[in-house]
Write a protein that binds this DNA or RNA. Sequence first.
DNA 1: CTGATTGCAAAAATTTTGCAAGCCT
DNA 2: AGGCTTGCAAAATTTTTGCAATCAG
Lengths: 149, 149
Amino acid sequence: MRRKQMLVERLRCAGYKITPPRLAVLEVISQEGEHLNPNEILGRAQTIRPGLGRATVYRTLEILTQLGIVRPIYVGESGPMYIRAEGGHHHLVCSECGRIIDFDECVAEEMVHDLRERFDFEITSHLLEFYGVCAACRKLQEANEFKSR
Amino acid sequence: MRRKQMLVERLRCAGYKITPPRLAVLEVISQEGEHLNPNEILGRAQTIRPGLGRATVYRTLEILTQLGIVRPIYVGESGPMYIRAEGGHHHLVCSECGRIIDFDECVAEEMVHDLRERFDFEITSHLLEFYGVCAACRKLQEANEFKSR
DNA sequence: CTGATTGCAAAAATTTTGCAAGCCT
DNA sequence: AGGCTTGCAAAATTTTTGCAATCAG
């Protein structure tokens, strides 16, 4: 995949060695549209490279985060999930059931230039999350209110 | 503080009992403009209510997250930090040094109505984070590049 | 009163670290 | 060859859970 090759380059340029364990993690990261936690990343990367150690995944994720390639987010209850940092991520998160809906349109881009001016900040990506209650959970809530009367 | 009273009400309305431990946590949450991790919340809440247990903080944070009062975010390396969920949060996060800059203006509000229409999602708050490199870290990077030539 | 809540201690889960062996470059 | 990387196992941290005692309503 082209995307993976670009990531490999970024690692290499930053002075890191390109090793099979790192390639396995990169493969997983670059393939997934989903959000994965470290444990899931380990599992999937192990199908590519059996014997891959958990510590290596953490160490690689740290590097990738440092380089701005991935980024941990919190969503719902569970622990951290890693997403590709490039570009933007846009989620609707239901605070009741934890469901995540992705959407594309985003007005954040408009702000990048202004923020760069004001704060002298070189922006490479963004995350926009809306929190609220999804339709299904609202129905449940209404049902419960009704019941409790 | 007025803010705290509102939170107390929301807890009460949701059917939770108002107890000293919960009040202590609410006090900390409502006072802080900062982002706090569970451990810091415990520490501060214990100055209000010595003997407060760590588990209670976690349990309370879970409730508050559920109610959409606070929300965990990941920023920089460390673990989760809790912020008030109400309204919006807007951060610039430096991926090099982890520095966080808050800013106010936000175009996200414009999207709320549209998203509600499209996904039937009742939006209560949002988080907008821009990731990049701050001025100081860029200077450092340039210096290092220069050195390595 | 009565069930929700608490603190504690133990258990789980998650993350980090030390280190000898192995692998990129 | 030399130093960065790795996997492992142990350590450290963070979070969850079981339970008897306590407390809010």
